[in-house]
Amino acid sequence: MADAGARHWSAYREFWRLNFLTLMEYKVNFFIWLAFTIVYHGVALGAIWIMMSRFPSMNGWHWQQVFFLYALYMLGHTLNNTFFFTIGEVPDLVREGRFDRLLVRPLDPLFQVLSQPGQIWPDELVIALIVFILAQGAVHLQWSSSTVVLLVLATLGGAYIDFAIQLIIATLSFWVVRLDALRWVVMSLENDFTRYPLSIYNRAVRIMLAYVFPFAFMNYFPATVLLHKSAEVGYTFNPQLGWLTPVVGAVWFAAAYSFWRLGLNKYQGTGS
């Protein structure tokens, strides 16, 4: 067991070393992707700014707070992107038959999916930190030890929520060939609907974002704790709910991982 752990650890270190060497080799590529990341989040923030300039009332949240909401989302999301990004390649691996290669090697298949050397750098995480520093200044966040603990838990839990949903979609590819449309809609649910406070939506959307695809735990619920939004117009929930993000992350990840094992067994069982 300890042996398997050591084997995985050394493979993982090698993975990051290769990523770093790829970065040094393909510098232009790195800058293109860096520009892409900046444009991507710039467009999202631009859309929020445009909307807030025309529709300034978001159920009592002003633009600084909506900006903070996005920054908090970015932390968990980019942490997920940095460490678990390649999970999105599973449908391609399965379709093209390359997934079988992972099954004959003496390392865990999910681990192998997550450690395919490529063009992965923590640049997006760095951008997220910069945006967060600006956003916490804009809302005059009150720092205390509990603020730090909550932020760390929300970021880690948020990354696991994000990863769990991606893992479930990836697992579906063992049954369904083309998943682009589904991936696209979940991505849009995540990107477009975490931008505004959950309390502006109707009940069906709130339930979906809080308890089915729990993206609201990535930013909205922790933000209500951090910004002391204890009473939201037309939406009542326990004001300490934001502390539950790591629990939600753990539960959803456990469920997603069980589903993944199930899919893996089915895949190996039929030998397809």
Binding site: A181, D192, I200
Partner: peptide, 28 residues
């Protein structure tokens, strides 16, 4: 199968966006 997921995803987005715009209009 992709037709179903694609049409389904459009419908889900129609639903989500109309709730978003309804909320924004109600507030502003």
């Amino acid at each position: 199968a992709e037709v179903f997921t694609r049409v389904g995803s459009v419908l889900l987005r129609v639903f989500l966006l109309s709730t978003l715009w309804t909320a924004l209009y109600r507030n502003n």
